[in-house]
Amino acid sequence: MGEFTFTVEKQCPICGESTRVVKTKSKLSVERTDEDFCVHYKGFNPYLYKIWFCEKCGYAADEKTFLGSMPVVHKRKIKEFLDKKKLGMEFVEVRRVPDAVAAYKLAIFYAEMTDQPLAKQAGMYLGLAWIYRYSAEKDKEMEMLQQAADLYDKSLMTERYPQNGMSDDMALYLVGAIYVRMQNYEKATQYISRLIGDQGLRERDIHLYKQARDLWQTIREDKEDAK
């Protein structure tokens, strides 16, 4: 199909029909990575294709959720909702920003409907923020970053980690990094200082400790520049 993508058929976990989804090829050239782990690739934005949706019924989720096992009660809840609504989005092989945003918003809607972990919902808002970052829609990016930070914060207080492939240390770092992106240095300091002040972090994750220390330095420099 394209230089960076290819289309495959997958079975929808809700309606059971076969639907086309677009996958990205693994060989992508990285240009840089932001503090909050948003990777900038050369000539392509794979985040546009992170959410799969069923062109038959309108269900949307990330690949892992789409292909994973779902509790019967969640499946029933979504199916009952979709039986009353017609949400089928048009399948496109080449996604533009509005297509990706619509897919993300649908996936977030279903994640909230089925009480997915807050850390997972936060990750989706963060992914949506990255879509807006790529398309230079600053206000919308900031709005989504705030949603992600709020949810990660709630998650850290109420959920047991690891969550969504992350340790609680990583989640703490990520919230701090998100606040750096938002230039809220006071909030960023609160989170990153907790990591740096944790004596055990060096033993648990030396790489993350170094990242936190570097981010702390960035916060100090940015605060000075802002004066």
Score class of each variant (00 low, 15 high):
69 S>A: 13
79 K>M: 11
89 M>L: 14
58 G>L: 04
104 Y>L: 02
104 Y>W: 00
72 V>H: 13
72 V>N: 14
103 A>D: 00
103 A>K: 06
65 T>I: 12
87 L>H: 12
109 F>P: 03
106 L>E: 05
113 M>N: 00
51 I>D: 01
81 F>S: 09
75 K>Y: 02
111 A>M: 07
51 I>R: 05
75 K>F: 03
92 V>T: 14
65 T>C: 09
58 G>A: 01
60 A>K: 10
52 W>V: 02
82 L>D: 04
114 T>G: 06
56 K>E: 10
104 Y>K: 11
49 Y>M: 07
115 D>H: 10
102 A>W: 01
68 G>P: 12
70 M>H: 03
95 R>T: 00
81 F>K: 12
116 Q>L: 15
58 G>Y: 06
78 I>N: 08
63 E>Y: 04
83 D>P: 08
106 L>K: 15
100 A>M: 07
62 D>G: 01
120 K>T: 12
51 I>M: 06
81 F>G: 03
76 R>Y: 04
79 K>F: 09
100 A>P: 11
60 A>V: 09
116 Q>H: 11
88 G>D: 06
110 Y>N: 03
59 Y>S: 02
56 K>P: 04
95 R>D: 09
68 G>T: 13
119 A>M: 12
59 Y>A: 02
57 C>P: 03
99 D>K: 05
103 A>S: 08
102 A>E: 13
67 L>M: 15
53 F>N: 14
81 F>A: 07
102 A>L: 14
74 H>K: 05
98 P>G: 03
66 F>I: 03
52 W>K: 05
81 F>I: 02
120 K>S: 04
74 H>I: 00
119 A>K: 01
61 A>G: 02
79 K>S: 12
117 P>H: 11
96 R>Q: 15
80 E>T: 08
66 F>L: 00
53 F>T: 13
77 K>A: 13
99 D>Y: 02
54 C>M: 06
107 A>R: 03
86 K>Y: 07
112 E>S: 01
74 H>C: 06
95 R>W: 12
50 K>W: 10
77 K>L: 15
54 C>Q: 00
120 K>R: 13
116 Q>W: 13
121 Q>S: 10
91 F>Q: 05
87 L>E: 14
90 E>L: 06
114 T>K: 02
112 E>P: 03
76 R>G: 02
88 G>P: 04
100 A>Y: 04
53 F>P: 01
50 K>S: 15
116 Q>M: 15
114 T>R: 09
86 K>L: 08
87 L>A: 08
76 R>F: 02
60 A>C: 10
89 M>S: 10
69 S>G: 12
92 V>Q: 13
104 Y>P: 00
97 V>G: 08
53 F>G: 13
117 P>G: 10
55 E>K: 01
116 Q>G: 03
108 I>A: 05
99 D>Q: 09
78 I>G: 05
60 A>M: 10
100 A>G: 03
72 V>Q: 15
85 K>V: 07
59 Y>R: 11
122 A>R: 02
68 G>N: 05
62 D>C: 11
118 L>P: 05
101 V>Y: 10
